[in-house]
Design a protein around this nucleic acid. Structure first.
Length: 724
DNA sequence: TCTCTTACGTTTTTT
DNA sequence: ACGTAAGAGA
């Protein structure tokens, strides 16, 4: 294996990390410092120089995208088959372990994965089953509680009964939810991790086997690990051996969903002899952008410390725009993009980042009006669409009749006369006899417990599923899916919907058949030594673990709109961060607590470091939020950027305005020219200087910096400004 | 049982 | 402002 070409392109710190002697190593990789590259090359190094067997390598990421990218990079570096490498997400790998060792994990062979939506529905049902008021015990909150406990590695029996009655009640909900999942073979995302942790913890033979096998463990984005993931890594590696972790504590932005920034801090204590390498040279951004990022993040106290530098020139200053309102802000963004495109820039080189999704609407409207194609990240993903989940519910019932959430979804979709009444008596029956809804339904037919008509409908449903299974035994997966779509009546149901929405749904359902035909349905490549998973089971697991892309037109040349969170890991030559205002960013609910504020600041750091060449920050003086007008102050993060790095932008236009028309008066053509720099007088604000002039006619407005009152935006036709 | 209306609560999101 | 979710009428 030719290795010198791999090393030549690395800087000293990167090379130190890639070629480090075996043992615990922590790589603190700043934004844009070549993190993914180092990770991939380390694996290449292990294989080529340390003579590691592909068999002995386990590489863990957080997202499927990152796993795919890593696999791609390694494939590009080496021309050996990497099928035997385990590269995957925490959840994907945990799932794989559980499928391989379902017996040891005390799971039924056909266990199903519960996605967030299914989980919430089930929790809600548990709350009702416990005769609790779901107003007082909101299902999202209870679900949150359950997931938080699982993220901490706690099953119900490990939680000590608290004196707090609310906690006790939540614990009861957790308990009954957990029992139900165990009984019906359902595993939620948190359970995947927790179960596979317990599997290794409680089975010394298995643990020894995997410890001896995975001699090289690599973990990406370590700052995002939660307690159970951290403990899982510790358990698997025994706190020693060749553990290579990469992360950046300054980019930890998922504390709110259980990520523990301490994990990357305490690595050196829990893994004795661990060394730390810092990657601080940035290859992405201009000097000004980096300096701004450094200055902002320096205000955080809880840091391992790291200062990014670059050989690049300072570049353009960071542009700060004080907008009149969110529409003005959007227009500013749009005009700058237009300018960029006129200069030959590509649309896909532009990223617009915001703190919360609600901010995208005005931006979208404006881009739509300007005919600039854009793509919004996030939102509903393919496997989360209602019609897809309907179809999957049938497939899941075929795989596991005890899957209650799927039963509830499919039983009256399309409507077949099985309503809330019938379902409720089924639920009661199921609860009392500790059966799944399916079994309860089998028992209830003809028993007189429910109305004859409903009984008939129910019988029809059970027969449908049973005959579907019988008739499709020999079919390929896509043919099976196709058959399910037709015989369930879902295709007819959506086909009859007149709107284009129905048409879209039919298309999506057909796309599901295509998805079933794509063999990529293995989250972690199947290694040859294992028995291949049942095709349907693998497809269902794929659907749950990898929800698919948000929007289809990923390849078109589009401006990219997304939240700051989803921008992590991406970069754009031109970046706008909009709504940089107190209350929005930092968000209202994170402003009080210092810890949460620091996370907001890290989010700002992530946002700033997404930019390669040009960075625009904007804030509005007036904003409509939840139907209310607010007058937010510019964000403190703006003030944390040294003034010398920024430039205030204002639109350079001059407009003529006419004095307000008096009723009945003849329209006067004699306008007064206002231009930036013009001195004016206002009745109550006094004297000031025009900063920015925008818009035409009645919509024209000016920003004036008054000597006493400060900067104000004024509508020209109301302000009665008098030029001096 | 289905459809229409009203009330409510609004960060961030992956698996 | 806006979407969802629960309750009342057809």
């Amino acid at each position: 294996m030719e290795i010198s070409h791999i090393l030549e392109s690395l800087n000293p710190a990167q090379r130190e990390a890639v070629t480090a002697p075996l043992g615990p190593l922590r790589v603190l990789a700043g934004a844009g410092s070549g993190k993914t590259r180092v990770l991939a090359q380390r694996i290449a190094w292990l294989l080529a120089v340390e003579n590691a067997s592909p068999w002995s390598i386990l590489a863990v990421t957080f997202t499927n995208k990152a796993a795919a990218e890593m696999r791609g990079r390694i494939e590009a570096l080496l021309d050996i088959p990497i099928r035997k490498l385990w590269i995957g997400t925490f959840h994907g790998i945990a799932h794989r372990l559980l499928r391989l060792h379902w017996q040891e994990a005390k799971l039924p062979q056909g266990f199903q994965i519960l996605d967030a939506d299914d989980q919430q529905r089930l929790v809600k049902r548990m709350i009702r089953d416990l005769n609790l008021d779901d107003k007082k015990w909101p299902p999202p909150q209870a679900t949150w509680f359950i997931n938080a406990r699982k993220d901490e590695g706690l099953h119900p029996h490990q939680i000590h009964a608290q004196d707090d009655p609310a906690q006790r009640q939540l614990l009861r909900i957790y308990q009954s939810y957990q029992e139900h999942c165990e009984r019906t073979g359902l595993v939620d995302f948190g359970e995947l991790l927790l179960r596979s942790y317990e599997l290794l913890r409680d089975d010394p033979t298995l643990l020894r086997h995997y410890r001896e096998r995975f001699l090289h463990v690599l973990v990406d984005e370590f700052q995002d690990t939660n307690t159970i993931q951290y403990n899982w890594v510790r358990l698997l590696t025994g706190g020693q051996g060749d553990v290579f972790i990469v992360g950046d504590d300054d980019q930890s932005i998922y504390g709110w969903r259980g990520a523990r920034i301490e994990n990357i801090h305490r690595f050196s204590e829990d893994f004795p002899g661990a060394r730390t390498v810092r990657l601080e040279q940035n290859y992405r951004s201009t000097g000004a952008i980096l300096e701004a990022a450094n200055a902002v993040i320096a205000n955080n106290l809880e840091r391992l410390g790291k200062t990014l530098w670059t050989e690049d020139s300072a570049g353009d200053p960071i542009a700060v725009y004080a907008a009149f309102n969110e529409y003005d802000e959007a227009r500013f963004v749009m005009e700058r993009i237009r300018h960029w495109l006129e200069q030959g820039g590509k649309r896909s080189e532009v990223g617009i980042l915001y703190r919360s999704n609600a901010q995208s609407r005005v931006l979208e409207e404006t881009l739509l009006g300007a005919r600039i194609p854009y793509r919004v990240y996030g939102g509903l993903r393919f496997f989360e669409r209602a019609e897809i989940k309907d179809a999957l519910a049938y497939l899941r019932l075929l795989a596991n009749r005890d899957d209650d959430p799927s039963f509830e979804r499919a039983v009256n979709m399309p409507p077949r006369g099985i309503g809330e009444r019938t379902l409720e008596s089924l639920r009661i029956l199921a609860r009392e006899s500790k059966l799944s809804l399916w079994r309860a339904a089998q028992g209830v037919i003809g028993s007189g417990h429910i109305a004859a008509r409903a009984g008939l409908a129910l019988h029809g449903f059970l027969t449908l599923i049973d005959t579907l299974e019988r008739d499709t035994k020999e079919l390929s997966l896509p043919a099976l899916v196709d058959e399910v779509l037709k015989r369930s009546g879902l295709l007819d149901l959506y086909g009859k919907e007149k709107s284009d929405k129905g048409e879209m749904r039919v298309e999506n359902l057909q796309e599901l058949v295509n998805a079933a035909a794509t063999p990529a349905a293995a989250p972690v490549a199947q290694a040859d030594e294992e028995e291949p998973m049942n095709e349907l089971a693998a497809f269902l697991a794929h659907a749950a673990l990898e929800a698919g892309e948000g929007q289809a037109s990923a390849w078109e040349d589009c401006v990219q709109l997304m939240t700051l969170h989803s921008a992590k890991g991406l970069e754009f030559p031109m970046v706008f961060i909009v709504g940089v205002e107190e209350g929005l960013f930092p968000h209202q609910q994170s402003m009080r607590e210092p810890k949460r504020l620091e996370e907001e600041r890290r989010l700002a750091y992530v946002g700033i470091t997404r930019a390669r060449r040009q960075l625009f920050l904007s804030h509005a003086e007036k904003r409509r939020l939840h139907g209310r007008e607010i007058y937010p102050k510019p964000s403190r993060f703006l003030a944390e950027i040294p003034v010398k790095l920024t430039r205030d932008v204002r639109t350079r236009t001059t407009v003529h305005f006419t004095q307000p028309r008096r009723p009945g008066s003849v329209e006067s053509e004699a306008g007064v020219a206002l231009y930036p720099g013009q001195r004016v007088r206002h009745r109550s604000f006094g004297e000031g200087i025009v900063q920015t002039v925008e818009g035409q006619g009645a919509h024209a407005r000016v920003q004036v910096r008054f000597a006493k009152a400060g900067a104000k935006w004024l509508i020209l036709s109301y302000a009665n400004l008098e030029p001096i």
